[in-house]
Simulated scan of single mutants.
Amino acid sequence: MTSYKDALEHARELVVKGRAPKTGYRRALYGRSWDDNTSVPLGHNGCRTREDILQRDLVNVTVRPGTGGCVVESGTLLDPYTGDVVYFQRGQGTSALVQIDHVVALADSWVKGAQAWSMDKRRAFANDPRNLLAVSGWVNSQKGTGDTATWLPPNKVYRCEYVARQVEVKRLYSLWVTLAEQRVMMSVLQKCVIPSVAS
């Protein structure tokens, strides 16, 4: 994991531009949801990406027999965005209590560089575990397509980690940021490097 000091420097180095038009954006342009057929970490392991992230981020996981160790039936999440404990039980009406968030939202990537990518690169981005977190469904809906300038996790303890991850994903995929976004990234990370006595 990159240090907060390095993340602050990387945030300073990100290309700053305005948003491109959202024209033409569709989820389908990033491939089939949770596609295992990618070259990113955990790709080509026989399990859909959602199952990989549930297994990585939940504890006390039980897996459905006969699914090759893939399908998560239940588990417990300590939601990084809220600090809440969420019990996951697969089923209609309960599965959505835990969702997989794209830390850098797909729609945000579209207006900051991804329009020019190949389908393979967009599919990789949509399934890259470095850009994915299991979180509470309601907070994932609240975040929507927000970037750092418009949304931060309500759990303030996690904001350093969240912003550092956004910076590193944008750097890894050569996405740009808006000026407002960069300012918030740097403001948050400066407090992580030199914690305020008052905080």
Score class of each variant (00 low, 15 high):
N60Y: 00
D35N: 15
V163A: 01
W176Q: 08
V63F: 08
D128C: 01
G43I: 06
G83M: 12
W151R: 03
E9T: 14
V135E: 03
L172H: 15
V15Y: 07
A107V: 04
A105C: 07
N155T: 06
D35S: 15
T150V: 05
S136G: 15
D84S: 12
G93L: 09
Q115D: 06
A180P: 03
G69Q: 01
R32A: 14
G66Y: 02
S174C: 04
M1Q: 11
N45Y: 06
V98K: 00
S33E: 14
R159C: 03
A149K: 12
L8A: 12
W138T: 14
L189R: 07
W138M: 12
E13C: 05
V177T: 14
S118W: 10
N155Q: 09
G93P: 08
P154S: 04
P154K: 02
H44F: 14
D36Q: 13
Y25E: 04
R32L: 13
D120I: 09
D6W: 05
P41I: 06
G31M: 05
Q92G: 11
K191W: 01
Q190F: 00
K170T: 09
Y162C: 05
V184M: 06
K170E: 07
P65D: 13
F88M: 02
A11E: 02
W151V: 08
T82E: 12
S3A: 11
A124K: 02
Y4W: 14
A20G: 10
V61N: 07
V139E: 13
D79R: 03
R159L: 01
G137R: 08
K191I: 01
E13V: 06
V15G: 00
L14S: 10
L175G: 04
D84M: 02
Q182F: 07
N140I: 07
K17A: 15
V40W: 00
D128W: 09
F125C: 08
P195R: 08
T178A: 09
P195E: 09
L8I: 06
L179R: 15
D6T: 15
V40C: 01
T178I: 08
A116V: 01
